[in-house]
Write a protein that binds this DNA or RNA. Structure first.
Length: 595
RNA sequence: GCCGAUGUAGCUCAGUGGUAGAGCAAUACUUUCGUAAAGUAGAGGUCGUGAGUUCGACUCUCACCAUCGGCUCCA
């Protein structure tokens, strides 16, 4: 079955959904119903509040409609006729779409909404009949509902703003998945179940990596000892990769006077997302830092700089605080206290390329370690909306040109994201692909002419004149919180040996072997191995089961044989096929997995 | 922030307009055991928080908080 056929089936299933809803709730108003990955959705304004309980009834109605074997009949009419038609049946949203089409030549607000109308024939609108049901649609569709296999399922209900704008009314979006065969649908549903098992929120709690407390507040994760080990290892790893490139570590307070962010321009831009701190001792107004760059500029500005000093590279692993909408907080993926592995490079325009290449090298090595392929995106400004950005179009063209030059020089494939830039400059974003095909934008290299300008940063050039440096912002892991969420799901909680909070579990067979285990543990601790000892009175089987459940990479069962000098039997993640290593080999292997 | 759902023991989950239940975990005791769950016992809960309806609310209603699925946003 081709992709096109599947697309058509999904699209036609969306129409059947709309028809089923119309039959059950005759006064609904239909929005749009496009095909999405694995299925479709339909946005519908209901006259009453509905909940997920109604989905089975709608599904049943859909199956009933399929049994009628209605044909899909296409009909074309002028836009004015179509407007009159949909006005008559009180489908206000369709009328709005048609009016837009008539006036602007497109219904596009964002791409996924565009498929209802064929822009190739601007003066003609097409409608599709399914039995007595009519919908504005560019098609194509199956010829008859009998071509739909019935391998679909309505999955969830959500609120969605009409045309994606939060000022517009909110419609009820019904999501569904649809496949060509029941087997494919079943396989998909099983895959979703598997993905749930990897959910970092579930694993984070099971493996004791982080926690939330209602007293501390939502979106403010607390890292347990185990979670903190992983964080520290990630920090150390980035630190090691940065070593050849001349970064200096700095340290700044987590708050600042509001003036700093008024100067930087962040205050105006992100006023709603900033935590405010008031002082009873002075009239100064403070905020929790939502980013680090303004602070770092003030370290740069703390003394006169010469061209001989450049590039100056300040790095820091530190938290920023952002007052995100509560409805979008989610585990570690979206939090209000965010740890950035941040760095800012102050350099000349000529030096930017080399610096970007160095950062690219760090990013590449970092993600290779986790076997995560990277997709590259050049995120540029949208010249149509320059009011969203600081600085002139000319400055932007220059900085985009520099980044493009870097990417072209690397001969790497990349896409261009128009309108994806930060408000102060263009970026190279790195989108990591991880387990079960998910993607997340994590690493970034950003160019910035604006902050040096706003803070009037300078250096003395060779000829004695004052020049303005350029700033490069970069992050490797993105944020430690989000990166950890990705890693937990990537590895399904089973961190590789170098990254696991506990690397080795010693499981003595009986009480007689405890002393030997204590001694071995001491030796391994001396070698910086993260090792613990199961001194419960349980049987060996139970100890292995527990160790495997905790996703500890290596479990060593220790009894008379091992105490007597025979090689250690090492179970990897509890698996039965085990390594046999003598004491020297054991230590050699473990040492290989230090950072 | 918006739409919808959910909230019972540390975890996973039953349950009813008449004062609360299981398994696992934890604790104590017994067992000291060779590769994925030893046995026994006792304990553990203002049923998310607050108000309302009721003779009586964990159950019904409302508000709030938190979480989940989306939308919008993401420096």
């Amino acid at each position: 079955m081709s992709e096109d056929t599947l697309f058509t089936i999904r699209h036609s299933t969306a129409h059947v959904l709309a028809k089923a809803v119309m039959e059950l709730y005759p006064s609904v108003k239909l929005g749009v119903g496009p095909v999405i990955e694995n299925g479709f959705f339909y946005d519908i304004a209901f006259p009453e509040v509905i909940s997920e309980d109604v989905l089975p009834a709608i599904e049943a109605k859909m199956h009933e409609i399929l049994k009628r074997k209605d044909t899909f009949r296409r009909e074309e009419m002028s836009i004015d006729e179509a407007i009159a038609f949909f006005k008559k049946v009180h489908q206000d949203f369709k009328v709005e779409l048609l009016q837009d089409l008539k006036e602007k030549g497109t219904t596009k607000v964002n791409p996924e909404e565009a498929m209802d109308i064929d822009t190739a024939k601007p003066d003609v609108a097409s409608v599709y009949y399914t039995g007595d049901f009519v919908d504005l649609c560019r098609g194509p569709h199956v010829a008859n509902t009998s071509e739909i296999s019935g391998a679909f399922k309505l999955t969830k209900l959500a609120g969605a703003y009409w045309r994606g704008d939060e000022k517009n009314p909110q419609l009820t979006r019904i999501y569904g998945v649809a496949f060509a065969t029941q087997d494919e649908l079943d396989a998909y549903l099983i895959m979703i179940e598997e993905a749930k098992k990897r959910d970092h929120r579930k694993l984070g709690q099971e493996l004791d990596l982080f926690a939330f407390s209602p007293l501390v507040g939502s979106g403010l994760p607390l890292f347990t000892p185990k979670g903190t080990i992983v964080r520290k290892l990630l920090e150390d790893f980035v630190s090691k990769l940065m070593k050849p490139y001349g970064y200096s570590r700095v340290d700044i307070p987590h708050m600042a006077k509001v003036d700093l962010y008024k100067t930087s321009g962040h205050y105006e831009k992100f006023a709603d997302d900033i935590f405010h701190v008031s002082s009873k001792k002075s009239d100064d107004e403070f905020i929790m830092k939502p980013m680090n760059c303004p602070h770092h500029t003030q370290i740069y500005a703390s003394r006169p700089r010469s061209y001989r000093d450049l590039p100056i590279r300040y790095s820091e692993v530190t938290k920023v605080y952002r007052d995100e909408n509560t409805g979008q907080l989610a585990g570690l993926s979206r939090v209000r206290s965010i740890t950035q592995d941040d760095a800012h490079i102050f350099c000349t325009l000529e030096q930017v390329k080399q610096e970007a290449l160095n950062i690219y090298e760090i990013i590449t090595q970092f993600y290779a370690k986790f076997d995560m392929p990277l997709r590259i995106r050049l995120s540029v400004h949208d010249p149509k909306y320059m009011e969203k950005y600081l600085g002139s179009n000319e400055t932007w063209e220059t900085s985009v040109g520099i980044l493009r030059n870097v990417l072209d020089g690397l001969k790497k494939e990349y896409e261009v994201g128009v309108g994806e830039a930060a408000f102060y400059g263009p970026k190279i974003d790195f989108i990591a692909k991880y387990a079960i095909g998910r993607e997340w934008q994590l690493a970034t290299i950003q160019l910035d002419f604006n902050l040096p300008e706003r803070f009037e940063l300078e250096y003395a050039d060779a000829d004695g004149t004052k020049k303005r440096p350029v700033m490069v912002h970069r992050a490797i892991s993105g944020s430690l919180e989000r990166f950890m969420s990705v890693l937990i799901e990537h590895y399904a909680g089973a961190f590789p040996l170098w990254l696991a909070p506990v690397q080795v579990r010693l499981a003595p067979v009986g009480e007689a072997h405890l002393a030997f285990c204590e001694k071995l543990k001491g030796e391994l601790v001396e070698l910086d191995v993260r090792v613990d000892l199961d001194d419960s009175g349980d049987k060996v089987g139970a100890k292995i089961r527990r160790s495997a459940g905790e996703k500890i990479p290596w479990t060593l069962v220790i009894g008379d044989k091992e105490v007597g000098g025979e090689p250690f039997n090492v179970r990897v993640f509890g698996q039965e096929e085990a390594l046999d290593l003598d004491r020297t080999a054991l230590i050699v292997e473990l040492k290989k997995h230090a950072i």
